[in-house]
């Protein structure tokens, strides 16, 4: 287990200069992710038009792994359809939890820099939180948007005292 290999330059770069960082005007969907283990909190907002993610942004307080994961996620799903984004969420989860053989076909591309997280169970949640939150945001489209105002969907990972 090489824990330092996790902190590769691409992750450190996204942590230093997160892409799509900030708030989004005219967002159609958003969700708040929370990790009680460390108090990390992530807001994800996106604009969905004709089932296409036109714009996406995030902000919040988190560790480098979570922030870099969120930043790379936003660049990966921008311009993708909702279905493709959901498929990528599944693939990322499977990679992070060690359920995926990276030799099999996948669409993760540079996101494979996070593959080392599978050896650090306590940090898996840090990497997955943004994806979990994106999933919650996308699903609020059918279940939340018509019924409520802008009550954010809560995505919670971890269960710690």
């Amino acid at each position: 287990m090489q824990t330092n290999s996790l902190y590769q330059e691409v992750i450190l770069d996204h942590n230093r200069k997160p892409r799509n960082y900030g708030t989004l005007e005219h967002a159609s969907h958003h969700a708040v992710g929370h990790n009680p283990l460390c108090g990390d909190r992530l807001d994800i907002a996106l604009q969905l038009e004709h089932d296409l993610i036109n714009a996406i942004s995030f902000h919040g307080e988190s560790c480098a792994i979570c922030k870099a994961s969120a930043s790379m996620m936003t660049t990966a799903v921008k311009g993708k359809t909702r279905v493709d984004a959901e498929a990528l969420i599944d693939e990322f989860r499977d990679m992070a939890t060690g359920k995926m053989d990276l030799n099999d076909p996948h669409h993760l591309g540079r996101l494979t820099v996070f593959s080392g997280i599978r050896d650090l169970p306590t940090r898996v949640k840090c990497a997955i939180l943004p994806w979990h939150t994106l999933h919650a945001a996308l699903n609020s489209m059918t279940s939340v948007s018509t019924e409520t105002d802008d009550e954010p969907t809560q995505a919670i990972t971890g269960n710690h005292t």
Binding site: L6, C63, A64, I65, R123
Partner: peptide
């Protein structure tokens, strides 16, 4: 500027 979890993981190394 560094989150405690990142500190913990790198120290573990």
């Amino acid at each position: 500027g560094i989150h405690p979890h990142d500190i913990g993981t790198i120290l573990n190394h």
